[in-house]
Design a protein around this nucleic acid. Structure first.
Length: 378
RNA sequence: UGCCUGGUCGUUCAACGGCAGGACAACGGACUUUGACUCCGUUAAUCGUGGUUCGAAUCCACGCCGGGCAA
């Protein structure tokens, strides 16, 4: 896909002075959202500084076909740099490979080997991306940090609330539940009140170059986008095959390592039995994968770790709240007491290692990582 | 190897002597800043050889293979 010419960008030269001389570091990804965020802020009069983080990613497996599934590809960097050039603002590319490797990639591998299913993007946002960006913002002595994430911030009762985006289909509060007051007080999310379609429209109206970076992304640090093969490479191609069993006890086949599967998974199992089968259990001690026709038993409560409450304090245990256990997943009723979350109804596909985010209406209160799940009774 | 029974996509189950169809798997796509779930699409089969018939997966004979019963 070709970029359009950058000459159209002269219209972004601003007549007005930045209000109060405020400056903002804008996190750029090379995509359309962060580009529009930067343009809007510049238009509003901020002194914009473009920053892009370079995360660790696996070396391309095949030099003939460079991986295009990564978030910091050279073309994405080029797009971000071109944008800054056209806006006539500085651009910094910040190396963050080390912390990303340590805090996202290595735990990702460890999690799978430990039979849980990690959420690398949640860890990245909470432990690498935003801390690093804020560090850069401090170093550059900027007033604010901004990103193109689709969430809204509102202040009441001396507390910053993170609200779901107006465009709920693009809402990204789930991914940002790990942020706190100290961080949020200097962060701007200009797109929280925008609809994605309007962002696209605005971008084309104003001649923002069409991004070469696809809107959607899989695991950004894996060359071929296949996490199973990535784990094979990381673990030295060791296989630890074991039996695949039906819940009724029948042996259905053989697996090549439990990390190839996640609870609730249906496709890619390689066994045919005339009916659809789902992963209902992974047993490390016997190295056994168990499948069943009805999927894993629904969960009625769970325990969280790595909890963050955006407002600083946990919600009242008696309050009826909503929760989400998957990015853009269905919301369900819960109540929260300490690190325990009790569901109003049994919920399928709540999996250890994944994030659970708690909401009061549109207000994202925070959340945690699912450590253990319980079915009714226990 | 004297009796009975069965052999259809990779697997499994259908099809009155009249266009071989479904389910599951596999593959592709949509969706998606995590793994999944979900949705859409594609590929793919009558054990072999003869015979009866306008027409055979279907009926007949023989063979091959798999089950079962049987001193």
């Amino acid at each position: 896909m070709e970029c359009c010419t950058l000459t159209d960008w002269s219209q972004f030269k601003l007549d007005c002075e930045p209000p109060n001389g405020q400056s903002v570091v804008v996190a750029l990804s090379g995509g359309i959202d962060s580009a529009v965020a930067a343009c809007l802020l510049k238009q509003q009069g901020y002194a914009v500084i473009g920053v892009m983080l370079k995360f660790w990613s696996e070396a391309a497996l095949d030099s003939d076909s460079p991986a295009d599934n990564r978030c910091c590809t050279e073309s994405a960097v080029d797009d971000a740099r071109s944008l800054c050039h056209a806006l006539n603002v500085p651009f910094y590319l910040i190396n963050s490979e080390e912390p990303f490797l340590e805090k996202v990639v290595q735990p990702f591998v460890a999690s799978y080997l430990n039979s849980t299913t990690p959420s690398p993007c949640l860890r990245c946002n909470a432990l690498v991306r935003f801390p690093k960006l804020l560090q850069v913002k401090e170093a550059l002595q900027a007033d604010f940090l901004a990103s193109g994430h689709y969430v809204r911030l509102e202040m009441h009762d001396y507390c910053i609330h993170m609200l779901r985006a107006v465009d709920t289909s693009k809402d990204q509060s789930y991914m940002l539940y790990g942020l706190n007051q100290a961080q949020l007080k200097s962060i701007l999310f200009p797109l929280g009140t925008w609809k994605k379609a309007d962002v696209r429209h605005w971008a084309s109206e104003h001649g923002v170059p069409i991004s070469r970076k696809p809107d959607s992304q899989e695991l950004c640090f894996i060359s071929d986008g296949d996490y199973r093969r990535f784990l094979q490479r990381q673990t030295g191609n060791q296989t630890s095959s074991g039996p695949i069993k039906h819940v009724d006890g029948t042996v259905l086949g053989k697996h090549e390592g439990l990390w190839n599967y996640t609870i609730g998974q249906r496709r890619g199992l390689g066994v045919a039995s005339g009916e659809a089968l789902f992963v209902v259990g992974k047993y490390l001690d016997s190295n056994t994968l168990v499948l069943g026709p009805d999927g894993p038993s629904p969960v009625t409560s769970c325990r969280l770790t790595d909890i963050n409450w955006i407002g600083g304090s946990p919600p009242d245990g008696s309050e009826q709240l909503m929760a989400c256990a998957r990015y853009h997943g269905r919301m369900f009723e819960v109540s929260v007491a300490g690190d325990m979350v009790q569901f109003g109804q049994p919920v399928a596909l709540v999996v250890p290692g994944q994030g659970m985010v708690i909401y009061r209406g549109d207000d994202c209160l925070g959340g945690g990582v699912i450590a253990e799940t319980y079915s009714s009774g226990s």
